[in-house]
Amino acid sequence: MKRPLRTKLLIEVGHNEAIEMANEIIKNYEVQEIQPPRQGLTMIKLRESAKNSLFYIGEVLVTETKVKIGNSFGTGIVMEENNTLSKALAIIDAAYKEKLPETEKWFYVLKKLELKLQNEMEKVKCSIERTKVHFDTMKV
């Protein structure tokens, strides 16, 4: 599973799963904390459609953590203040880069989360669709 989707699933619907995965790694490997969870900013670069150029719309608060397992650095970044999740994401990131065997069975956890996210999104979409206007022409 590609990282954009993996991180999305863990951040949107898999907080508990992420923490469990990270704990599994901490139990079995030495995890070195390179950057303890800290808060910082990420500047958002937006594409505007009038001239198709780019501009900065503003910054978002993030919590960042960096760890090292074996020879691999892992980064965990999540919006708002969330030290626990940020650190868990960093450990998971490093575990994938280090190709630890645990990551193979995580695939099934992530597949479940993918289904969960799809279901949640589908529910929201169905509800929003009720607000779609169905035009009728008025009789004169």
Binding site: L41, M43, K45, L61, V62
Partner: peptide, 10 residues
């Protein structure tokens, strides 16, 4: 706060 990152093109 330190600015740590820039987003990809959003």
């Amino acid at each position: 706060l330190p600015r740590l990152y820039y987003s990809t093109i959003t």
